[in-house]
């Protein structure tokens, strides 16, 4: 734990917020269309309709906001899942929640030709919930109850199942493949501000919900028996956690497609910085998650310029080594 006293934690929180803002500005400035800080300033003060100004206000700004919001949400979902399941590898993508939401959205777009953003969001929630409940049920079934290995395997099974279904759908429908391919990779590019606005209410509910239950998460992390002994209604708390996770993960998938590994990596980094108190851990993870996704998105523009790497691919490339590190370290070490 890097920051020990509350004063340092507040300073750290302010610093992380500033970093997030700075990266959002960076995300607005850097890219294929050459723009400067001054241009960005002008674009919001007195937009002259020039190409650069248009790019900044209609392309870059939504993109930066979306990346920040999605990173924020996915990281918090990761923290909640890791505490709930006592599994350091828990995250929406490894547990198949992303794949479930992805499959539901693909079905919605291809079979029912859904264009309505609200409808797609709800479909994503539905898919995420089915996958999450399925994985949790499978992982807790049996005599020993919830074990990390069962849960991880259940997640992998769910993810494999949903992604093979998705693939099956796309093979039979070439036009649909073209339509959803970029979305399936996970990307924050080319999305309008309306998409964010339609999902934002759910995300905000999720963020606030996570903060409200954070003191109780601390009790839960001491172990279920202890938590019960201390008078915590664990069943109710678990349902709350599940709802928050589904809101955050499903909402993120609806905006940006399945973006992996942020949900695993960030909680660990945040824990190393502020320790295991969820009241600090949750906001820190959110801010850092936003930062990481913004960085990944900025890098994604430069690697194979003028084309772009989908940011989901970038986070997978950044995240896999970390995942392997945690997997090697083992489950027992804290």
């Amino acid at each position: 734990m890097l920051l020990k006293t509350n004063r340092w934690k507040i300073i750290g929180l302010i610093f992380a917020s500033l970093l997030l803002l700075l990266l959002m500005c960076g995300s607005i400035i850097y890219g294929y269309t050459d723009t400067t800080w001054k241009m960005a300033w002008d674009a919001f003060q007195f937009n002259n309709g020039s190409n650069e100004h248009l790019v900044i206000t209609t392309v870059r700004l939504p993109r930066a906001l979306i990346a920040a919001a999605v990173g924020f949400s996915v990281a918090i979902a990761g923290v909640l899942m890791q505490t709930l399941t006592k599994n350091p590898l828990a995250s929406p993508d490894i547990f198949g929640v992303n794949a479930g939401a992805g499959f539901a959205v693909v079905i919605g777009i291809t079979m029912f030709s859904m264009g309505n953003l609200q409808a797609i969001t709800w479909v994503a929630f539905l898919g995420a919930s089915i996958a999450a409940i399925g994985v949790y049920a499978l992982g807790t079934a049996g005599r020993e109850g919830l074990t990390p290995i069962k849960l991880t395997l259940a997640g992998a099974a769910m993810a494999a199942m949903f992604s093979s279904f998705t693939q099956g759908f796309l093979v039979t429908d070439e036009a649909a493949l073209e339509q959803v391919l970029f979305w399936l990779a996970g990307s924050v590019q080319g999305r309008k501000l309306e998409i964010l606005l339609s999902v934002l209410p759910y995300l905000i509910v999720g963020w606030l919900g996570a903060m409200v239950i954070s003191p109780k998460m601390n009790v839960l992390s001491m172990g279920e028996d202890v938590a019960k002994g201390l008078g915590l209604r664990t069943g109710l708390l678990k349902v709350c956690i599940a709802i928050v996770v589904i809101l955050l993960a499903g909402g993120s998938v609806a905006i940006a497609g399945p973006i992996g590994f942020i949900g695993i990596v960030i909680p660990h980094v945040a824990r190393a910085i502020v320790g295991i108190d969820h009241r600090w851990l949750i906001p820190f993870s959110g801010l850092l998650g936003g930062c990481l996704l913004l960085i990944a998105d900025i890098l994604a523009r430069y690697i194979i310029m003028p084309q772009e790497v989908p940011v989901g691919v970038m986070t997978a490339i950044i995240g896999t080594p970390f995942f392997i590190y945690i997997a090697r370290k083992g489950f027992n070490a804290k």
């Binding site: 391919l181 990779a185 992996g260 989908p310 989901g312 691919v313 997978a316 896999t320 995942f323």
Partner: peptide
């Protein structure tokens, strides 16, 4: 998971 990402890329 990484392989899946690379395939999509």
């Amino acid at each position: 998971a990484l392989m899946q990402a690379l395939t999509t890329l």
